[in-house]
Amino acid sequence: MSGYEKPTPRINPDNARFWESAHEGVLRLPRCKACRAWHWPPGPVCPDCFSDRIGWEEASGHGTVSTWTVVHKDWFPAFKADIPYAVAQIELAEGVCVTANIVDCPADELRVGLPVEVVFDRVTDTLTLPRFRPRRG
C-alpha cells in the first residue's frame, strides 16, 4: 500500500466480490438468480423481486455516460495534482448505473451519451479501480 494516499473504498460483505473481481481484471456485478435482474449497488436482497439469491456475473464493461462532472476544487490533497479530473456516471449495458472516473478523454469531448468501456487500474497490491475510457473500435 506504500505511497498510495488517495481514499480507498470501504469493503464490506455485500460488496467484497466486486472489489475482488476488479483486482482480477473482471467487472462482475450482482445479479438476481430468481428474477435475473442486475442491480447496483450491491446489497443483501434483490431490489426487484426481494429474493435473497444474489449471484455475481461478469458484465460487458460497456456503457454510456449518463452524466459527468469535472472537479476543479482541491477537496482532497491527494487529488490536487490530478485537477481538473473527470468523474462520471455510466449506464452499463446491463442497465445499472455506476460512478467512476473517465480517463483518456479530453474534457471537451465529455458528453452525455458518450460510449465508454472499462479499464482496470491497479493502484496498490490489493486494490484495482475500474475506470472508463471512450470506447475504441
Partner: peptide, 26 residues
Amino acid sequence: YRETGGTHAETPHYGLTAPAGGAALA
C-alpha cells in the same frame, strides 16, 4: 465513504466528494 455510495453520490476513491458533486451531476 458509505459502501453503497455517499448520500450525494460521493465516491471518494474516484475523487468525487461534497454535496456539490451530486448537485453538479444532476
